[in-house]
């Protein structure tokens, strides 16, 4: 029960401070889930992001569900997921009910512009940190650069990138394995 409440609380804190969607959650997950609590490894976190992008639903929620399941099965998934969505629900409820023209308040705009600059720096630091584990050779470096640029400059859905790379990656490794086997036989 302690772990379930921890899951709820940690994910609520992450949800409450994520500005700009699921990708912006990455630095927070790295700190809380990987570095501090060791609930998942860097590799696992990347795997969850990869699958979370091509399964239906919100990426942030999907990643929370993965980590919750890993730790405590169904209940873990439920508590982590409810945790990550609770701050949103409360904050938006208050704004929708009591504050009109929230997005036009000057201080909100200024604060958010500042936060955006911070989010760029935080995500970039995370990407650099994760690259050591995810980009392991020339092939993965090419995949990284191509996906980053194509996704930024075109409107191709992230789902297509994930599916295409899954097949390419499987193919490359099968060829590699075959070559190695062939080499051994000679």
């Amino acid at each position: 029960m302690k772990l379930l409440l921890d899951l709820f609380y940690i994910f609520a804190r992450i949800g409450g401070f994520t500005f700009g969607g699921g990708y912006a959650m990455l630095p927070m997950l790295q700190k809380e889930i990987v570095d501090k609590r060791k609930w998942a490894t860097q590799d696992e976190l990347m795997d969850y992001y990869a699958i979370g992008q091509c399964t239906p639903g919100i990426i942030a929620v999907n990643v929370a569900t993965f980590i919750g399941t890993k730790l405590k099965g169904f209940w873990g998934a439920l508590f982590a997921t409810l945790g990550v969505i609770t701050p949103s629900i409360i904050i938006i409820m208050i704004i929708a009910a009591f504050v009109s023209g929230f997005q036009d308040i000057e201080a909100v705009t200024h604060a958010f512009n500042g936060i955006r600059a911070a989010v760029v720096a935080l995500i970039l630091s995370s990407v650099i940190k994760l690259s050591k584990k995810s980009i392991v050779d020339k092939i993965t470096a090419v995949i990284f650069v191509l996906v980053a640029l194509l996704s930024f400059f075109t409107d191709i859905s992230p789902v297509l990138f994930i599916i295409a790379v899954a097949f390419i990656s499987l193919g490359i490794n099968m060829i590699k394995a075959k070559k190695m086997k062939g080499g051994e036989e000679k």
Binding site: Y49, V127, I135, T140, I143, V147, I162, S169, N173
Partner: peptide
């Protein structure tokens, strides 16, 4: 093996 790099590419984007 490839997906981790692709996923990171999407985050970079």
């Amino acid at each position: 093996y490839g997906l981790r790099a692709a996923s990171l590419g999407l985050i970079a984007s």
